[in-house]
Design a protein around this nucleic acid. Sequence first.
DNA 1: ATGACTGGAGTTTCCAGA
Length: 262
Amino acid sequence: MVWILGTWNVNSLKARQEHVLRYLEKKSPSVLCLQETKLRDEAFPKAVFESRGYQVLHAGGPGRNGVAILTRDPAKGIIRGFPEVDDPQAHERLFGAEIRGIYVISVYVPNGSPVGSDYFLYKLEFLYRLREFLERHFTPETPLALCGDFNVAPGGLDVYDPELLEGQICFHERERSALRLLADWGLVDALRLKHPDKPGLFSWWDYQFGAFRANRGMRLDHIWVTRPLAERLADCFIDCEPRTWSKPSDHAPVIAVFDLPD
DNA sequence: ATGACTGGAGTTTCCAGA
């Protein structure tokens, strides 16, 4: 069977509810991970999504964060935040569940701006904690998909101007190396597995300066998969269509298509 | 033309996003 997994930073679900519903209707993903819902748990309009056949798992809070997993199939083995670490922010930034034998994680890595600040160090720490979390709870042989907004462009191909952006937030060597350390646990970047050398593939564009029209963006949203899942990957792409809709999120969905046994 | 974006909080202007 074809199993479609998506991840999308919606920049407020309240502002983007109609976009998300339209997207589910048009593309019918099996699972859609969301980031930046900006909702408290009790404020999530669960019934609206349930009536369209999606179970809602949401980890929000009073702040600007909030991650969710919308799934057509039942979920179990739910994990919220880093269970072994006292990190309240992670409770609104990490949510995982097992769906059809695949462990799906929706994550929103802190932005970390400005470079060099305490918040920047927290971003790096968050990426290290993410690796420790994987080490503790899973193995690289677990079918696992780590999806979300990593707020890091992995390499020079993933930003519109690597020379200009080098050292700036989301394209600093310390961020990239923290991301590599995470991936070295046993994860593959699904998009680069299918499109290893293709430039101009971005998932975020600044609202300002006509950045989307000029395709001046960065690839900050990723789907990282373990080997057993990578072997099942049929396709991976960034779906720019919702970025063209009226009042869009500044991020576009990333979609991975898998061929799973029936 | 010297600006140019968006959402949320909370109250009219600021902060954060990336």
